[in-house]
Nucleic acid binder design. Structure first.
Lengths: 220, 220
DNA sequence: ACCTGAACACCGTTCAAGT
DNA sequence: ACCTGAACACCGTTCAAGT
C-alpha cells in the first residue's frame, strides 16, 4: 500500500546533501533575490527541502549565519582600486565597501554586532592595515584606525538602510529634518543657524568627508 | 444573567486610559527591567491590559516606538559635564552618551537606523553643535561633525551589545580574535605583526581614542 | 549515530465585527 | 466613531522520537 519509493524516483530530483557551504550559498541567493529579512531558518529549510532543525547541524544559529553571509559578500570588495596615493586607494577600498553594504543595508545593520571571521574579512583588514602603514601610521594607529574605519563604514551603510526600502520611511525621515528645520531659534540657536548644513550633502558626500576626517585624525 | 459591572467594580483596578505617553512609559519600564527584546507590541498590550491592535491607535509601529524610547533615554545624558576646555566637555557629553547606550545595547543597535526626533535628541544635537563651534569649527564641520560623532557613538555601543548579554557570545568573540591571532604571517603579514594591537584596549579606551581622532580630524 | 517532525513559545500587523 | 478580538502569516530554537 505504501511501497518504498524506487531508487529511480530518488535519483531524479537529486536532493543535494546538506552542508554548511550549501546553506550559506542558499542564504546569499535568497538575500540577493528578496533581501535579508527573507533569509530565515524556515525559509532556508524549505529552499533546501528539509526541516528547520536540520540546519542547526551545520550552523550555530542565525547570528553565525549572518556572519557567514557577510563574509561571503565581502569577497566583492575591490581591494586594489586605482589611485596614485595610499590615501586615494584607502578611500577607494572603503567606497567599494560601502557600495557592497549599501546594496544590502539590512546586512550592514546585522554586521554592526556580528564581526565575521572569514577569509574575506581578514583580507580586508590586512589591506586596510597595509594602507595605513604605508601612510605612516604606527602600530596602534593602524590597528585601532582599522576598527574605527570599519565601524563607521558599517554604521553609515546601516543608517540609510531603512531609508531606501520601506515606503513610508521617507516620511519618517522628513519628520527628523522638519524637527531640525523648525527648531526654535531661542531654545536651539545652533540648530536653527545650521539647519541648512545639518541636512546638506548626499550620503556618499558625507561618507567621503567622514573618511577624510578619519584619515587626517588617525595620523594626528 | 450577565449584569453590567457595577461602577464600584470598575473603580478599583482603575485601568488607566491608553495614551501615547503611557505606552512609551511602559515600554521604558519593561526595557529597564527585562531588556528591549521583551518590549513587544503584545507584551506592552498585556501590560496595559488590552489587545495589541489598540496600541496602533497611538503609535505607528515598532520603529516609531523604538525612536520614542530612545529619545526618552537620551534625557539621562549629562549635557553639562565638568571640564576646563570645550574638548573635555565634548568628551564628557559623549562618554555620558555611551554610558546610557552601553546599558541598553539593543537600543543602540536599533538607534542606528532610527533617528529620534524628540526634545532630548534635539537638546543633545544643540549641545554638540555649540561645543564644536566653541572649538572653532565652521558650519559644515560642526553640522557634519555632529553626525559623525553620533554615528560612531551609536555604533560603538551597538558593537558590544551582543558581547555582554548572551552567554556563548564570548566564545564567538574569541573566534574572531583567534582568527586574527593565528593569521598566517605569509598571507597576512600586517595582521600577524599587529595582532597585539588589534585586540588591545578596553571598549572604553578605544572609544576615548576614537573621540580624540574625530575631534582632531573634524577641525583639520 | 545521525537526522528531523512536530511542538514550544512566541512575533508585528491588519481588519472585520462589535459597542 | 471608536476600539479590539481574533486571525493572518509568520518567527528561532529545542528535543523526543524515529531511521
Amino acid at each position: 500500500m505504501s511501497p518504498r519509493v524506487p531508487v529511480s524516483r530518488r535519483e531524479r530530483p537529486a536532493k543535494p546533501a546538506l552542508s554548511r557551504e550549501g546553506i550559506v550559498a542558499t542564504a546569499v541567493a535568497v538575500m540577493r533575490a528578496e533581501g535579508l529579512e527573507k533569509v530565515t531558518m524556515r525559509r532556508l529549510a524549505k529552499e533546501l527541502d528539509t526541516g528547520p532543525a536540520s540546519l542547526y547541524v551545520y550552523v550555530a544559529g542565525m547570528a553565525e549565519l549572518h556572519a557567514a553571509v557577510l563574509d561571503e559578500l565581502l569577497g566583492e570588495v575591490d581591494l586594489d582600486p586605482a589611485g596614485e596615493t595610499w590615501r586615494d586607494r584607502l578611500a577607494g577600498v572603503l567606497a567599494s565597501c560601502t557600495g557592497v553594504l549599501f546594496q544590502h543595508p539590512a546586512l550592514a545593520r546585522a554586521a554592526i554586532s556580528v564581526r565575521p571571521a572569514g577569509e574575506n574579512y581578514l583580507a580586508l583588514v590586512e589591506k586596510l592595515l597595509a594602507l595605513l602603514k604605508e601612510g605612516g601610521a604606527d602600530d596602534r594607529q593602524a590597528a585601532w584606525g582599522v576598527d574605527l574605519l570599519l565601524q563607521l563604514t558599517t554604521a553609515s551603510a546601516a543608517e540609510h538602510s531603512t531609508r531606501d526600502q520601506a515606503g513610508r520611511t521617507e516620511a519618517e525621515w522628513s519628520q527628523v529634518t522638519r524637527a531640525l528645520q523648525t527648531a526654535d531659534a531661542r531654545t536651539h540657536p545652533h540648530i536653527h543657524a545650521l539647519a541648512g548644513e545639518l541636512i546638506s550633502g548626499s550620503p556618499q558626500a558625507r561618507f567621503d568627508w567622514f573618511v577624510d576626517v578619519l584619515t587626517a585624525g588617525i595620523l594626528h
